[in-house]
């Protein structure tokens, strides 16, 4: 069973995200959860206004996209689609959502990163501290097959490459073919030609990076992650989770 969460505002690229999820399921049973998030309406005035506010009003375009998503999923017997409306978000709430749906992957579309709504920006920042793997989809179209990965090593990373390779091969059917040290510490502009050269030469279609727990301060304008500029999808893995996962595998065998 594989479960995917796609936080979405029902933009065009949600369809791509759903396709990606279906592909990643690889015939296994899977549940795709589209999460629509909005602020909790004011409850001071009256319960009736709360009830009025809370009704989801979606536009015809959004309905259409939802319809396409449903169609895609209905083609596959092993997949099911679920819409989850979330009002308000906080770190513990998010953690519970992940536990409740026993999520294996969170897929975040490119447009979702660009959203200006405060609550969505908060959600994007909260993502980083969750243990669940996150796939940030790139701006380029047709990115639903990942087989060659470029590993961007975090300077303080403690995870050995073989662990990462094992995890990625098993869960994403992808191979790490190249690695580089963290770009943030080096000069990005100087480095980009090398990187694009390697990406083109080796046919890399996924970037992999690891993250560690850190304290999150919800800022108004979150810092854009450098590597998103490359246009490729970025898989962000929580280091401890990878190690735990491999350790469990080890004890099973």
């Amino acid at each position: 069973m594989k479960n995917f969460l796609i936080p979405t505002t029902l933009k065009e690229d949600t369809i791509g995200a759903v396709k990606t999820a279906v592909n990643l399921a690889k015939g296994n049973d899977c549940k795709i959860i589209l999460m629509l998030i909005s602020e909790t309406p004011d409850t001071y005035s009256s319960p009736s206004s709360f009830l009025r506010e809370i009704i989801n009003k979606s536009t015809a375009n959004e309905e259409n996209i939802l319809h396409i998503c449903r169609e895609i999923v209905s083609k596959f017997d092993n997949c099911s689609l679920k819409i989850h409306n979330q009002y308000g978000i906080s770190s513990p709430v998010f953690k519970r959502i992940i536990e409740h749906f026993s999520l294996n992957l969170i897929i975040v579309t490119h447009s979702y990163h660009q959203e200006e709504k405060r609550i969505i920006q908060n959600l994007v920042q909260l993502l980083d501290n969750q243990k669940c793997p996150i796939l940030h989809l790139g701006a380029m179209e047709n990115q639903d097959v990942f087989n060659k990965a470029l590993y961007i090593e975090n300077t303080a990373s403690t995870i050995p490459i073989e662990d990462l390779q094992q995890f990625i091969t098993k869960n994403f059917c992808s191979q790490i073919v190249s690695m580089t040290s963290d770009i943030e510490t080096t000069n990005l502009e100087e480095f980009t030609p090398y990187l694009t050269e390697v990406i083109n030469k080796n046919g890399v279609n996924l970037l992999v990076k690891t993250r560690k727990p850190k304290k999150i301060k919800l800022k108004k304008s979150p810092k854009q992650d450098n590597i998103i500029f490359l246009g490729l999808s970025v898989l962000s893995l929580y280091e401890e989770m990878v190690l735990e996962h491999n350790f469990q595998e080890l004890s099973l065998t």
Partner: peptide, 11 residues
Amino acid sequence: NKSNIKNSNVN
């Protein structure tokens, strides 16, 4: 030598 600090769980 692989980096000393990185302890692997890989079998």
